[in-house]
């Protein structure tokens, strides 16, 4: 197989990520492992969102819902002493897919402003549901006492083993989404985004394809949720906060919408920027205290002037590879 320049860069990036644990260990900086693991988990969520937002043209403002569902699936089972990871993660995937099917069956019939508001509203509903579940900590959330256990195959308490698991899942999802996008299914999805009237006129009814994409995307994001709750070892409805949905969208745009590497680049850029603005004590106090002010301005500027995202800085194009 001949790889395009962009594919080579993405592979190099993944290799670079794979080299981080030994290097961080050597320099005694485990903090970076934690930060990059978080970046990769959000990159997985952004990959799943990119599928419907980028390739499907569906502006879902509620993708944090599936982060939450995946996290709650793991957290609730763990709450009842069921720590089997296979079971927990299967539930995370199935539950996310079911919720996506329910929300998608209503929202995918609509478009434009309706679609945005409906996905946002349903996610808010799940957020309030999470808050009202006192049994699972209500709005305070609760601790995940034991991380998911995979019959001794991999130990998530081992920071670097967990890191490699996240990396492997990220790489798998990147490959998966790439296959999906270029398959017959993916082309119909993109066609419906590009020109709906034409798509109907040549004989496709877009709805079932959009709904299927919505469900696949939700299930993928559910995996990110299961990873996230293991990462923080804490379950909270804040995973489903509407601002989280906004951040996921921003990652996709910032990285480059409808590109393979965009979600990873966007997640890395946003979270590292946040981390720098928030925590770097070298910067003056007023800067990191009110970092959201600057983030807001940066967001507006990116949308207005840098719409094509970071991936557009890479050589080559997305079309044939």
């Amino acid at each position: 197989m001949a790889f395009s320049p962009r594919t080579w860069i993405l592979l190099a990036l993944l290799l670079l990520l794979a080299a981080v644990p030994p290097v961080a260990d050597y320099f005694g900086q485990p903090f970076y492992l934690d930060l990059l693991r978080r970046v990769m988990i959000f990159a997985i969520a952004a990959v799943s969102l990119n599928l419907i937002l980028g390739y499907g043209g569906m502006v879902s403002f509620g993708h944090a819902a599936y982060l939450g569902i995946g996290a709650y699936a793991v957290g609730i089972l763990a709450h009842y002493g069921i720590n089997n990871g296979w079971l927990q993660w299967s539930l995370a995937i199935v539950a996310s897919a079911l919720v996506a099917a329910a929300i998608g069956s209503i929202s995918a019939r609509t478009s434009g402003i309706y679609f945005i508001m409906i996905t946002l509203a349903f996610t808010q509903m799940l957020y309030y549901l999470g808050i009202s579940l006192e049994e699972y900590g209500g709005d305070d959330g609760m601790q995940l006492k034991v991380r998911s256990q995979f019959s001794g195959l991999i130990d998530l308490n081992d920071a670097s083993a967990f890191y490699y698991l996240v990396l492997a899942i990220l790489a798998a999802f990147l490959y998966l989404s790439r296959r999906l996008v270029n398959s017959r299914f993916g082309l119909v999805l993109q066609a419906a985004r590009s020109n709906e009237a034409r798509t109907r006129a040549i004989g496709f009814s877009p709805y079932p394809y959009r709904l299927a994409a919505f469900i696949i995307s939700g299930a993928m994001c559910g995996v990110a949720g299961a990873l996230l709750v293991n990462h923080t070892a804490y379950l909270t409805p804040e995973f489903m906060n509407w601002t989280r949905s906004g951040e996921l969208m921003f990652m996709v745009i910032l990285g480059g919408i409808a590109t393979t590497s965009g979600p990873l680049l966007g997640a890395a850029a946003l979270l590292l920027l946040e981390d720098v603005l928030q925590g770097w004590s070298v910067l003056p106090k007023w800067l990191h205290e009110h970092w959201q002010l600057y983030l807001g301005v940066i967001l507006v500027l990116v949308v207005l002037f840098a719409r094509r995202g970071l991936a557009s800085l890479l050589p080559g194009n997305e079309h044939h590879d």
């Binding site: 296959r179 999906l180 270029n182 398959s183 017959r184 299914f185 993916g186 082309l187 119909v188 040549i202 004989g203 496709f204 079932p208 394809y209 299927a212």
Partner: peptide, 14 residues
């Protein structure tokens, strides 16, 4: 493709 059966084929590059 629109007239070649359903398009719920997710893997092979079209």
């Amino acid at each position: 493709q629109a007239h070649a059966g359903h398009s719920f084929r997710f893997w092979r590059p079209a």
